[in-house]
């Protein structure tokens, strides 16, 4: 017994040693700034940026409607912008899913070199600067851009369509940037899918639709959920895409936060906004994790 205790202790020491760098980095560069943000969000904004050290919960009141004082008023526009952001993020998740799911099956059936090539091509956009890629969409979508010129010259439309600075253009940009994040987790779970289970389902009388719904979908669900989470979160907070492709017409919370920090120099308000979004995402993820744990317990217990 003493021997196994020693082994356990050694294992624990190794674990601590392996986790130390990460823990150190996260606490210095994440936990401390986060604490600063939490504190600032409850302080009074300074006149020219910075903060006054007074207890001031009214930053939240401006967004949520409570608590308020004589100077701060509740403005419903913030919730609306948040809802619009959520809507854009959800649409982004749906579109990236619809693009990635069939593609994952297609790629998983390729052999050897072709498969590696396809995976490389999917990650290829990462190698180019994001601003350049987004700016390219600006050129494609603007009234005198590629799409409108083509459509006009073929006579399909009389005057340029209003493609730019709409939810549509923002979603296109988001989908363009985030598709690989949806594809890779889905691909991992599709690759793991045991085709003999599909055959077993057919053998037991299930038609292709039933097989898909009862076997393929549940078995690839972890990849779909994983992909959705890591697309949804950056989509919700993104500010570069709406800044370029949404102009002043499409506002997302990312732009709002950026503006309160950099333009109106209202740090506590920006912090409050950022923390509310973070709280929302954390609650969503916790909900998902607890669901997964329950599924896993079913598997082991």
């Amino acid at each position: 017994m003493a021997g196994s205790g020693a082994i356990l202790a050694r294992k624990r020491r190794t674990l601590i040693l392996l986790l130390a760098p990460l823990t150190l980095m996260l606490s210095v560069f994440f936990l401390i700034p986060l604490s600063i943000m939490v504190i600032y969000s409850f302080l009074e904004p300074g006149l020219y940026g910075g903060v006054e050290w007074n207890w001031y919960p009214y930053n939240y009141g401006r967004i949520l409607g409570w608590p308020l004082n004589d100077f701060e008023t509740f403005e419903v526009i913030y919730l609306k912008i948040f809802l619009n952001s959520a809507q854009i993020a959800v649409m982004t998740v749906i579109v990236t899913f619809l693009l990635s799911y069939p593609a994952a099956f297609w790629v998983s059936r390729m052999t050897g070199a072709r498969k590696n090539m396809a995976l490389f091509l999917i990650t290829l956009p990462f190698f180019a600067n994001m601003l350049v890629r987004i700016y390219a969409w600006l050129l494609l979508l603007r009234p005198t851009g590629f799409f409108n010129t083509i459509l006009q010259s073929t006579g399909l439309i009389a005057e340029p369509l209003n493609l730019l600075f709409t939810n549509f253009s923002v979603i296109i940009g988001m989908v363009y940037i985030l598709t690989p994040f949806m594809f890779l987790p889905i691909y991992a779970s599709v690759e793991k899918l045991d085709y003999s289970l599909v055959r077993a389902s057919q053998d037991l009388g299930a038609n292709p639709i039933q097989t898909f719904r009862r076997v393929i979908l549940p078995l690839t669900a972890p990849g779909i959920i994983g992909g959705s989470v890591i697309v949804f979160i950056p989509a919700l907070g993104n500010f570069i895409v709406p800044a370029f492709l949404g102009g002043s017409k499409v506002q997302m919370t990312g732009n709002l936060i950026e503006r309160s920090f950099l333009q109106s120099r209202d740090w506590p308000f920006g912090a409050a906004l950022a923390l509310l979004i973070m709280a929302f995402v954390v609650i969503l993820v916790m909900f998902q994790i607890s669901r997964q744990n329950r599924a896993a317990e079913r598997g082991i217990a």
Partner: peptide
């Protein structure tokens, strides 16, 4: 899926 035959697979293929 329309044939009145069923198969027991080598690796069982349980869901």
């Amino acid at each position: 899926h329309r044939r009145p035959f069923n198969t027991v697979f080598q690796n069982y293929a349980l869901f």
